[in-house]
Simulated assay, not measured.
Amino acid sequence: MIAGRSGTQKSGFALFWVAQMNLPTLYFSADMSPFTASSRLASMATGETTEEVEAGMKRNRISRSRYLDALADSRITFSFGAPITWRAVDEELEAYVELWDEYPQVIVFDNLMDFDAAETDYTEQMAVMSGVTELARSTGATVMILHHASDKTWEAKSDPWSPPSRDQVKGGLSEKPELTLSVALDPTSMEYRVAVIKQRMGPSDPTARQYAVLYCEPERTRFHARPYARTTHHMIGG
């Protein structure tokens, strides 16, 4: 699970992660449009901003061909639409196996509250988590699911750029996965802070006070181990 408050680049981080792994991936997105997803991937590959990519895609056939060439090696297959339903998951998996004769090695659900009937219903959210666990076991895939942390706690208001602690993850659902990461973005420094708040077979810090630091370029959907040169920056919700 990747958990964080609203606007903390959860989708961008997950997309960057699976793109860097370059494993056969099935990505269920209820938020991104096909155009947004392809623009983000092309931005990662070319180093151009998503705005530059989107303008280039609309400019002419030569520009579009250049971006399509940059995406040629991508191993991510997308399924778009909201809400996410188990019927759609089954159909997409059947189609994937029909095409590739194997299950994807990575499956991403963006996000938990976009599953049918799971927006506010805790019982349904628990059912989704149980279904995701069973899916991982039956397919052998690594399954990532994105989820929200509360924006209304005292910590969220007093220290909004620190990763939320485990008790701030909505519904207490961070307990279910093998590994739960808590993420936050500091827009003043573009530090991307990643805390391990639950790990079944390793160390974790439920308070999220211990975290690793990456540096984020939201406009290019890129994350770096070290600070990067920049003249301007702006946040893009994820």
Rank of each mutant, 00 (worst) to 15 (best):
W100I: 06
W100H: 15
W100S: 15
W100L: 13
D101C: 15
D101R: 15
E102K: 11
E102A: 13
E102L: 08
Y103I: 05
Y103P: 09
Y103A: 09
P104S: 11
P104T: 13
P104R: 13
Q105D: 13
Q105T: 07
Q105L: 12
Q105S: 15
V106Q: 13
V106C: 08
V106E: 04
V106Y: 02
I107H: 05
I107R: 07
I107W: 13
I107A: 08
I107K: 08
I107N: 04
V108H: 03
V108N: 05
F109D: 06
F109T: 04
D110F: 05
D110I: 12
D110W: 08
N111S: 11
N111V: 05
N111G: 07
N111E: 06
N111T: 06
L112E: 01
L112R: 03
L112G: 02
M113T: 05
M113S: 12
M113C: 01
D114R: 06
F115H: 07
F115I: 02
F115P: 01
D116Q: 14
D116M: 11
D116H: 14
A117I: 09
A117T: 15
A118G: 05
E119S: 14
T120G: 12
T120Y: 15
T120C: 06
D121R: 09
D121E: 04
Y122F: 09
Y122E: 01
T123C: 01
T123H: 13
T123Y: 05
E124Q: 10
E124L: 00
Q125C: 00
Q125H: 09
M126G: 10
M126E: 14
A127Y: 04
A127H: 14
A127D: 08
V128I: 14
V128C: 04
V128K: 00
V128G: 02
M129I: 06
M129A: 04
M129T: 06
M129V: 05
S130P: 00
S130A: 10
S130F: 05
S130V: 09
S130M: 11
G131T: 07
G131H: 08
G131L: 09
G131I: 13
V132M: 01
V132D: 02
V132K: 00
V132F: 01
V132N: 03
T133L: 04
T133G: 03
T133F: 00
E134R: 11
L135A: 07
L135S: 03
A136E: 12
